[in-house]
Every structure is written in C-alpha cells, then in structure tokens.
Design a protein around this nucleic acid. Structure first.
Length: 473
RNA sequence: GGCCCCAUCGUCUAGUGGCCUAGGACACUACCCUCUCAAGGUAGAGGCACGGGUUCGAAUCCCGUUGGGGCUGCCA
C-alpha cells in the first residue's frame, strides 16, 4: 500500500526544544495515528556549527515525556550525506544547478548598485564555473515561471519565480543546505504529508522545484499551520522566550495537560469541549479545522489546564508525581514517617495547586525543623494588635490540655475559644497559621496542626509568643 | 524595500450566508460557599479592525485600507 500516510517531524537540534515544535510534532503525530500511518523523527543537523548532541537528547526526552512516539528514526541528516551527494551530482549533470564563487559581500554590493531588493542576482548562472574552493552550488530557478503551493490550510498560494533567487543548496564547505537535505530525505523516506509551521511557507516553492528537479513522482501534501507567538505577537523563539518543554516539566506540569493545551492552540474540536484525552484528539483532529492565524501561548491558561488534570489524579498518583519535587528540598529525607505524613496531607494539597512544584512549597512547614516567619507577616499579622499575642498564648494553653490531638478536636476547642472571646474563627486562624506554618495560606489549618503533632505545635506557638514580645530592630 | 500569510471579547476559540440580541474557556469583577488559600456555584464586564461592494439577508463571500506576523542567510 503506497498510499499509507507518512509524516515526519524534523527539528534541528540548535537549542532547547520549545512548545511550538512540540505542537507541530503533536499535530503530525495525531494525523499519523488517526490514519494509521507512520510518524518519523528526523534530526536536521546539517549545520555542524550550530548543532549539539545535548539538544538531540532534549528533543528525544521531551517527545517521550509528552507521549509522542515515533515509528522510525531518529534519523540524522549528518549520517546521510551520501544521499545528498548523489542528488547534487544529478542536479549538476542535468544542468539544474551551478557553481557560484561570489562572496556575500559581492552579492550585497551588486544588490546595492542595482538599488533594488537584496538578494542574489544570478551572476554565475550561465558562467559554467567549476567547483573551486570557496564556491557554493546554487539551484537554477526555472525562469520565467510560477509555482503554486496547494496548501491544506492556506489554500493555493502562488509564487512567481521572479521573486525567487537561485538559492544555495550546497555550502562551500560541502555540506547541503536544509532545503536540499529536506527534500532529498522526504523523497527517500516517502513522506506523503508535510505539516510544519507557517514560517516555512515562503521556502515551499523552492522545495517543490527541488522535488520536481529530482524527479519525484508525486508531491507530498503541504499544510502550514500558524506559528505560536509571545505576548508581543512575535514568533516564539528559543532565544528570547522562555518556552522550553523541559522547563514546564520541571515546574510541575503534567504531560497530558500540556498536550491537551497545545492541541487547542490553533485547533478546536468544533464544539465547546476543551478537555480531550489522547484518543479523542486522534479521533477528532482534522487539518481542515486548523486555524489560520497565529496563537498566543498563554501560560496562565495552560496552568489552569494543569490544575484540572492534577485534580483528576488518583491520590496515589498525585503522591508519586510529587515525589521528585519533594526531593529537591533539603528537609525531605523520604523516610516512612515523612511519606506517611505527606500521603495524609496530599489530598488537601492536590485540590489547591495547579503545579506539582507548588505542592512542596505548601507543605514544607510539616517537615522543616523550624518555621521561619517572614518579617512582613510578623508585623502585619502577629503584631497587628495585642489580640494576636493573647490568642496564641491562650490557644497554646488550650492545646496543651488536649488528650486527643485530632483535627476534629482541635477545631472544636478552637471554635469554643473563639466564641468565648467573640472573635470569628476566620479571624483567629490567621495568627495561628502564621505562627505554625510561616504563611498566611496553606492546607486546612486543623488538619495541618494534627499532622504537625502536639509537641511541635506547642513549641512553635511559644516561639511565636517570644517573637512577638521581642521588638524588631 | 520586495514576496507571502493573517485579522471574532485582553487571550485561546465556536461560527463555513439566515439558528448570532455572536456561544464557550482562561484572565478580570461582584456575590455565594468557607477555618486561610484554592476548588466549586451564580452573576457581570468585554469582541466580529475599518470602508466599500455582492445578496432579500453577511462575523461568514469579493475588493480596498489599516494593523499584525513570517520570509527575504553558505540557519532550520
């Protein structure tokens, strides 16, 4: 069956793998899975000077994490140079390419003198030059002519060859340029559908011309999806925007949440649904439904998605996912006792965070030897009025006399105390929470106190009392 | 500069000529719930860039303007 869909994701390993690439990979993967075709991973590393092995590893691990698996590859263009040489030979023999020894400066200079648009003027086009040190091979654009790109998302886009320069396909150091390697590989690998970011649309006519020059029997179908942009609506770039997939993983994003959010950037299932699992995406994804305009990558919304996914986790799953984040803290030793405490508090945390990383921050007070109360809170909460001092003292006394140190019991006695001093519980919990946890927010207070244990609780309350009594400098 | 792409609330989007008084989601505001914070619930504010056509009828089709973006590399 020659008609089987074959798509490829072809990143270049020149930096952190960013979310825009991830979305392109995802779309390719979705149409492959939907059609029962093949998804091929190809590393475009023809530019020696800019590649690094670590970036390849980053791409591989990010895709794996996201659950985007490949059926073939990763192929590396750096290992396929023979193929490109053959193609080049053919183009030269057939007179479809020529050697050019113009320097960049010369090209610019002539463009300047012309007073016209920058770009190559075809100076060596008919000079029949031989390959010499410093010369590059250029593709001879058929003139006059037009090439129309039949794009699945843009429709037909016409390019006049008058606007296309004789572009370089082999650098003077002998290595192929990406358009060439790209096309040669796409032919060799039988790629039938090319889905990539819109930024590649302007080079597509060149690619098509190469496909034809190399005798490709059939052109692949092209689809150029809109790029992802930053707040200033510029194309997301790994240099100026912090958008590495790896970063999000480290912040505590769940892969399915990221995938779900990314899928919706430029596509929607056509109704009001926003939460889709992988199978639904595969079933519903349709290139014809993809939007035409750039999409802003909204981290805030992605975080919301993540919160939803976190809350859907089973309690055990949540605990396990949190472990790596707990391990980053020096107060975490991961013994049985800590594990048990965390398991008990985890459900209370799970519904309060939207990032796994937040979980650790929220429960640190349970494991730290001492609380550090920010000065700002000492002033604004504990020393705000004399009542806070009194409350902490009184509550300490009441707790000291408690036999059963449970959340329920603590709640009851505290509420009773509140009534006796005619203060609502919500007012009273603030100084208590700050004294015990060092923060104004956190898991429900009485559960926290129970987990903290009587001894620690009493100790922290008395420490807080002392702190209040000690004037700050 | 040249070529190309794009244009619905701040953002992501639904909308494929009448169902649109333009729907949903994030963010925002208010209220409810409540031991804090979240979550949840209810309500609210907020948009078809502009101008011409076509049509009985246009967010939807056409043209122009404006605005944004991409490409214009011996990067991918």
């Amino acid at each position: 069956m020659k008609s089987t869909l074959r798509v490829r994701f072809a990143p270049s390993p020149t930096g952190y793998f960013h979310v825009g690439g991830a979305r392109t990979a995802l779309y390719n993967w979705l149409i492959a899975r939907k059609a029962g075709g093949s998804f091929i991973l190809r590393i475009e590393d023809t530019d020696d000077s800019r590649n690094a092995e670590e970036w390849v590893e980053g791409i591989v691990s990010a895709l794996t994490w996201l659950g985007i698996n490949w059926d073939e590859g990763p192929y590396r263009q750096s290992e396929r140079s023979e193929l490109y040489s053959k193609a080049v030979e053919r183009l030269i023999v057939e007179g479809k390419a020529y050697w050019c020894d113009c320097t960049r400066e010369e090209v610019d200079q002539r463009a300047k003198e012309r007073g016209g648009a920058p770009g190559y003027d075809g100076f060596c086009r008919d000079a029949s030059k031989q390959n010499s040190p410093g010369s590059a091979l250029r593709f001879k654009i058929p003139r006059p002519g037009q090439t129309v790109v039949h794009d699945k998302v843009r429709g037909d886009v016409v390019f006049d060859h008058g606007n296309l320069d004789d572009f370089i396909i082999v650098k003077s150091n002998g290595s192929p340029l990406f358009v060439l390697a790209n096309v040669v590989d796409d032919i060799d690998m039988g790629i039938s559908f090319i889905l990539r970011a819109e930024e590649h649309l302007p080079t597509t006519p060149k690619a098509i011309l190469l496909f034809q020059a190399l005798g490709a029997e059939e052109l692949p179908i092209f689809a150029h999806v809109p790029v992802l942009v930053n707040a200033k609506r510029q194309k997301l770039s790994k240099r100026r925007d912090r958008v590495a997939v790896e970063d999000y993983r480290e912040m505590g994003y769940l892969a399915p949440a990221v995938v779900n959010y990314l899928a919706l950037l430029g596509w929607s299932p056509g109704d009001d649904r926003e939460f889709l699992d992988i199978d639904e995406m595969i079933e519903l994804f349709d290139i014809d439904q993809v939007n035409h305009s750039p999409a802003y990558f909204d981290e805030q919304k992605m975080q919301h998605f993540n919160g939803v996914y976190i809350r859907e986790l089973l309690a055990d799953e949540f605990v396990n996912y949190c472990l790596p984040f707990l391990e980053k803290n020096d107060w975490w030793v991961g013994n049985v006792k800590q594990l048990e405490t965390f398991s008990r508090v985890a459900p209370l945390v799970q519904e309060r965070v939207s990032l796994l990383g937040e979980a650790a921050e929220m429960i640190g007070f349970l494991f730290r030897a001492e609380v550090e109360i920010p000065l700002e809170l000492v002033d604004s909460v504990l020393r705000k009025d004399i009542k806070a001092a009194q409350i902490i003292k009184d509550v300490g006394e009441i707790y000291r006399g408690l036999q059963r140190f449970t959340a329920e019991e603590l709640h009851d006695v505290t509420r009773a105390y509140c009534e006796s001093i005619e203060t609502p519980l919500r007012k009273l919990q603030a100084p208590l929470r700050v004294a015990l946890t060092g923060s104004k927010v956190g898991p429900p207070l009485f559960e926290s106190i129970e987990l903290l244990g009587k001894e620690t609780t009493l100790k922290r309350l008395s420490l807080a009392s002392e702190l209040i009594g000690t004037p700050s400098q």
